[in-house]
Design a protein around this nucleic acid. Sequence first.
DNA 1: ACAAGTACTTACCCTAAAGTATGTATCATC
DNA 2: GATGATACATACTTTAGGGTAAGTACTTGT
Lengths: 138, 138
Amino acid sequence: MTQIKEASTIQENKQAAFKECPVTYVMERIGGYWKPIILFHLLAGSKRYSEIKKAVPGITEKVLIQHLKQLEADNLVIREARPVVPPYVTYRLTVSGMGLRPVMYAMANWAVEDSEANGTPMYKSLGNFPETPKLAAV
Amino acid sequence: MTQIKEASTIQENKQAAFKECPVTYVMERIGGYWKPIILFHLLAGSKRYSEIKKAVPGITEKVLIQHLKQLEADNLVIREARPVVPPYVTYRLTVSGMGLRPVMYAMANWAVEDSEANGTPMYKSLGNFPETPKLAAV
DNA sequence: ACAAGTACTTACCCTAAAGTATGTATCATC
DNA sequence: GATGATACATACTTTAGGGTAAGTACTTGT
């Protein structure tokens, strides 16, 4: 176990929260701005690096690979590289990553409803939502 | 919400993504580490400031009120203050905030399953998942 | 010969977010 | 009259994340 200094009560508390709050668990793995967006675009299936880059406008290459590597290290995506030139690298979700589909779907769903409720509907439907979502009982 | 400079093309792209990707929409409102955790703890119903502070260990007071104010400004929580001494302030979810319940639930669900799949089960069940409080019309 | 495409890498900078610490108003009680 | 509780506020510092720009390796196309 990691040793913790007496003075750092916050880190201790964070540890406790991590063990008790499932949402904290999630945030530790897909927290931040970009990761959910990247994962969302991978729901449709494996994509080349360049495809992801196009699908996620606004992200810089540095930040993109940075997160892709992190997601790979966290066992959420799998990187597959064909030893060809020019490089052909694809990324796809692991089983664990696939498990996030309901999360993404719930998010997308809320975005539609909430933007409508705000009087500024931005997304007509979820017709273009990647593939069949398994609806978990809520 | 956010002010945008002309010259930055990435910001333009971010705008485009905002209009096309529902997950981006969500991230703009509850992105970051703390907000989902705070919202999760408010699912159970209205809580006093001090209660939230206890429920979300690891967060500093500064960051907590900062996010609470932001969430209030984004119409996700409602602040109610009784003019008494000592102060009695409660926070509760708006209808919009309540709409995030499926998102939270999906997250919590994934945390349980994923931690089990990892061989390090951290949360036995979702028995303690915040029940639906009386739905207040807002 | 040289540009173009692919999937990165590296170096440097800058800002926004978060952490630390202390202060404030009001009243109750000890 | 000092202390504690509550719900913040404010100043200051640090850190992590993100942005800009340029480079790399290797081959195909012109």
